[in-house]
Design a binder for these strands. Structure first.
Length: 348
DNA sequence: CTCGATGATTTACG
DNA sequence: CGTAAATCATCGAG
């Protein structure tokens, strides 16, 4: 009888003779952690259209204004003009819609900051200057430039697409910035022009400029959102790809099995051994670790299944005669239900 | 398509 | 941290 007084919970996984494998009896409810909403929204489709329309309208307005410039001039020189102007001033003073409530725009700022942070974290955002919205607080956490601890070399594909996204992002951003400037100039000129006809204070012009900037920053936010979406799509796709499995090459399997079966008594390769195996097999160290983890557990679970494989690979490297005896004993208990002492005590 | 093999991920433990 | 164990998700042969 196994004196399993409080059978220590250590990982000495030598199965005791009497114990059967109680597999799967701890049925755990799987949590449906799937995110079924993988919306495939492509880039920023309509923003540039909108922008174009806005610009078109502006141009149109300007053209019309120019077309009627003669009439304006006539109006300007009309003798009643000063009187009318003052009347307008008077009216305006009475019905003054005070320009307040300019200071909203804060609620969406949280989201904007979130997006910005994400873009920054992903390296899409350059350390660009951003004046608006009081987001100056976010600064110094970002790694400036360097960031040499990027350990994954095999991400070149990912990086390529990332830089593509970044490029698109910046070109679009620049476009918007430029459009914003142009539009602002247009409006400013327009208002200045009209200020000769009706009372328009510089303060109001500034306000309008502020409004315009607000609108454009909203567009920018849309841009950022689109970029974030693209980013997330790319990332999820890439992570999925990482999860996607590709069988190792024959060479890798060979090398791994060779090590495993020639170190059956202690199949726990050291870090150096792992590196060596990784190099020989053309895989990464963590893949080696994964492989050994899987191999150990699966070998233990069903040793009979690996008999053939074992003989193959032990025959190959033939070196460890002392370890091979473990194999011999296993061969005798082929498909017997008591794998008991067949197990050497791995892990000393 | 099914189904076992298998690489990767997650969870829990010391 | 590294590992065991369970589980996921794909591969690949039939």
């Amino acid at each position: 009888a196994h004196t399993s007084d409080l059978a220590d919970h250590t990982h000495t996984w030598v199965p005791l003779p009497g114990e059967r494998d109680i597999k799967g009896s701890s049925g755990r409810a799987r949590n449906p952690s799937d995110s079924p909403d993988e919306t495939e929204t492509e880039g920023s489709p309509d923003t540039s259209d909108v922008l174009q329309q806005i610009m078109a309208i502006t141009d149109q307005s300007l053209d019309e204004a120019q077309a009627r410039i003669t009439r304006k001039h006539a109006l300007n020189c009309h003798r009643m003009k000063p009187a009318l102007f003052s009347v307008l001033c008077e009216i305006k003073e009475k019905t003054v819609v005070s320009i307040r409530g300019i200071q909203e725009e804060d609620p969406p700022d949280a989201q904007l900051m979130r997006l910005d942070n994400m873009l920054l974290a992903e390296g899409v955002s350059r350390p660009e200057k951003r004046g608006r919205g009081g987001s100056a607080a976010v600064a110094s956490t970002a790694t400036p430039g360097g960031c040499p601890n990027d350990n994954n070399i095999e991400h070149s594909d990912y990086r390529a697409k990332l830089s593509q996204i970044r490029q698109i992002y910046h070109s679009e951003l620049e476009k918007y910035e430029q459009a914003c400037c142009e539009f602002t100039t247009h409006v400013t000129n327009l208002l200045r022009e009209q200020s000769r006809m009706r009372p328009v204070s510089t303060k109001e012009i500034e306000y309008m400029v502020g409004v315009i900037h607000g609108k454009f920053s909203a567009i920018q936010m849309q841009l950022k959102q689109s970029t974030c979406e693209a980013l997330m799509t790319l990332r999820s796709r890439f992570l999925d790809a990482r999860r996607k499995r590709q069988n190792f090459s024959k060479q890798a399997t060979e090398v791994l099995n060779e090590y495993f079966y020639s170190h059956l008594s202690n199949p726990y390769p050291s870090e150096e051994a792992k590196e060596d195996l990784a190099r020989k097999g053309g895989i990464t160290v963590s893949q080696v670790s994964n492989w050994f983890g899987n191999k150990r557990i699966r070998y233990k679970k069903n040793m009979g299944k690996f008999q053939e494989e074992a003989t193959i690979y032990t025959g190959k490297s033939a070196m460890d005669a002392t370890k091979a005896r473990a194999l011999e004993s296993q061969a005798s208990c082929l498909s017997m239900p008591s794998p008991g002492e067949c197990w050497p005590d791995w892990r000393i």
